[in-house]
Amino acid sequence: MQELTFKVQRYLPGKDKRPYIQEFTIPLRQGMTVLEGLIHIKENMDNTLSFRSSCRMGICGSCGMLINNFPMLACHTPVEELGTDRIEVRSLPNFPVIRDLVADLGPLFEKHKSIKPYIISLDVEEAEVLTAEFLQSGQELEGYVQFAYCVKCGLCMAACPTVATDALFLGPQTLGQAYRYCTDRRDAGVEERFHQADSRHGVWLCHLAGACSEACPKGVDPALAIQLLKRAMVADSLWLRRKKKPAPVAQPPTESKQKIAVPEFTVK
């Protein structure tokens, strides 16, 4: 049976001075992912190994790790794709380590919160007590939907060379999400977000290395979002930005279709 060597970062704060690497040899299964390898180690070899995971299908963004020196989702990375039988797994760089492979994503969430990642409605009453939907065309949706796929896994922040040198830099995830909300016609918080992104550690620190877009497992392309945000902010500074028309509230339907009747039981 073919075997795999997992070189896994171990670190227990308070006990270990610095992270170190521990090797495990496990049997290779067809279609095995890196996360499955780690689960095998935890279940059969060392139950003290700590890592974060949840959905196992690239949706929740919990299992972001540095796999063979590239930030990836462990559940989304088949070991065969790595083209080697030696796999080195470390916790995400640019984040503090809580234990073993568990990175502290707190800084990511703090930065994300700072740009108000939610719809700020002009119509406060309507936002508080929704009476109907806000209308939006398919074209308007196309303008930001790609950036709305972000799962907050932190891979882009781990890949970003600017975050590595300046921990205060807002980073690709935050700036990408700032652009996502600024382009949404239902939103009226553009000025607040531009103000936040215009800081010393904001959008202009991005040097367009593109590492964020390469690392993103959801195809969000944060580098593109940052470039579009820069363009919008330049237009705003030169008083050339076209103001968004607020999305209209849909009229309540005047007639509704009849509910489909519950089918008769076939087994009695």
């Binding site: 215009d198 800081s199 010393r200 904001g202 959008v203 202009w204 902010m233 705003d236 500074s237 030169l238």
Partner: peptide, 9 residues
């Protein structure tokens, strides 16, 4: 002056 205006300059 804002960072954006400094960058434009």
């Amino acid at each position: 002056m804002s960072e954006t205006r400094l960058k434009i300059l």
